[in-house]
């Protein structure tokens, strides 16, 4: 099949960028979106041109590296799917597809479609960890956790930190990402030691990095490849209130 592409090209962090037209001709409908970009890049390299820079790693929907806004929606039109799991059969012959990077002050463009997501790392460094005892490995079932709690925590832990929530949010807010991490750890016994310190530190870090606030529209949940619910954001608020009132943080 043949597709027309409008792809954001930007030479570097400070450079001005613009959408440039490309054609993906003779690509298979069974290809993933990233494989199609590989084919386009192969042709660019053969012509001696600069390949389009984009992030990817596992290409099986679990690493959170791929990060493209396709036709105005982060990760493209399929629900609960990363770009690497999006296939060309989702498009029609001759379609024009716009491809842009995540856009947020906290995620500056490095080159073309690649953005710097180390702001997420800083949020994790601020509080996304648990304290563990040194010594031998503990027994896996030493701490009993009710099934429903472990399932809820696992739903939150499914977050792969891709940043689509920030990309979709009109405020470029990191609330869904943060709340998934905070929920995951605060629900489990292992996360109790830093429970109140964590929520305050992570929110302060996100605010300092220039992410916006939350308007409760839920665009984040709609584009999240792991379908993390915005009920996590409400839980983060409850944790924050508890930290303020109970723990006096």
């Amino acid at each position: 099949m043949r597709l027309n592409l409008k792809i954001w090209r930007q030479a570097g962090p400070g450079a001005a960028g613009r959408l440039e037209d490309y054609t993906a001709s003779d690509v298979s409908s069974d290809m993933s979106f990233l494989e199609m970009l590989d084919v386009v890049n192969d042709s660019l390299v053969r012509q001696g041109k600069d390949a389009i820079a984009f992030d990817s790693d596992c290409r099986e929907g679990i690493c959170g590296m791929c990060s493209l806004v396709i036709n105005g929606v982060p990760h493209g039109p399929d629900r609960g799917t990363t770009v690497c799991q999006l296939h060309l059969r989702r498009f029609k012959e001759g379609d024009t597809i716009t491809v842009e990077p995540w856009r947020a002050r906290a995620f500056p463009v490095i080159k073309d479609l690649v953005v710097d997501r180390s702001a997420f790392d800083r949020i994790i460094i601020a509080g996304g960890y648990v304290s563990v005892n040194c010594g031998g490995a503990p027994d896996g079932n030493a701490i009993l956790i009710p099934k429903e709690i472990s399932e809820t925590a696992m739903d939150s832990a499914a977050c792969i930190g891709c940043g689509a929530c920030v990309a979709a949010c009109k405020n470029a807010s990191a609330h869904l990402f943060m709340s998934a991490k905070i929920s995951h750890l605060s629900l489990l016994p292992q996360g109790q030691v830093e429970r109140y310190r964590r929520v305050v530190a992570m929110i302060e870090q996100a605010d300092a990095d220039g992410f916006g606030s939350c308007s409760n529209e839920g665009e984040c949940e709609a584009v999240c490849p792991k379908e993390i619910s915005i009920s996590n954001i409400a839980r983060m608020t409850r944790e924050y209130v508890r930290a303020m009132l109970v723990a006096g943080k």
Binding site: V69, N71, V73, R103, A172, S173, G212, N216, E217
Partner: peptide
């Protein structure tokens, strides 16, 4: 919030359900 995205998208669409 406006400062949080200084460069707008060229194309931005409604993400669909379950968005509110």
């Amino acid at each position: 919030n406006r400062k949080a995205r200084p460069i707008p998208y060229e194309q931005k669409k409604y993400a669909g359900a379950p968005s509110r």
